[in-house]
Design a binder for these strands. Sequence first.
DNA 1: ACTTTGACTAGAA
DNA 2: TTTCTAGCCAAAG
Length: 98
Amino acid sequence: MAPITDDQVELVRRLVAAIPPGRVATYGDIASAAELSSPRIVGWIMRTDSSDLPWHRVITASGRPAAHLATRQLELLRAEGVLADDGRVDLARARHRF
DNA sequence: ACTTTGACTAGAA
DNA sequence: TTTCTAGCCAAAG
């Protein structure tokens, strides 16, 4: 597969920006929607450029935020109405469908 | 050019 | 349910 393109990076950022408040999406969902070969690339994009995106709406497939951000991210999500009982988001209910 | 490092995931134990 | 493993791929050292 060809190396990742700027278009794909921009698409990922658009997709993240398009997640409405109160909803979340997994890294895998975004990777799939942007036709990326691996969800790690989404993580790389978030790490590289998180400044102007609602990064807190992006969570792992197990319904948990990334470990180092868990506390802060859950707090932001809870403020938007995303229930995270026991530190875990109910994906079946809050997952955003593209 | 090679090795390590991640904001990951699906599957197995 | 959790923990572990292998696959994954761009970037940094």
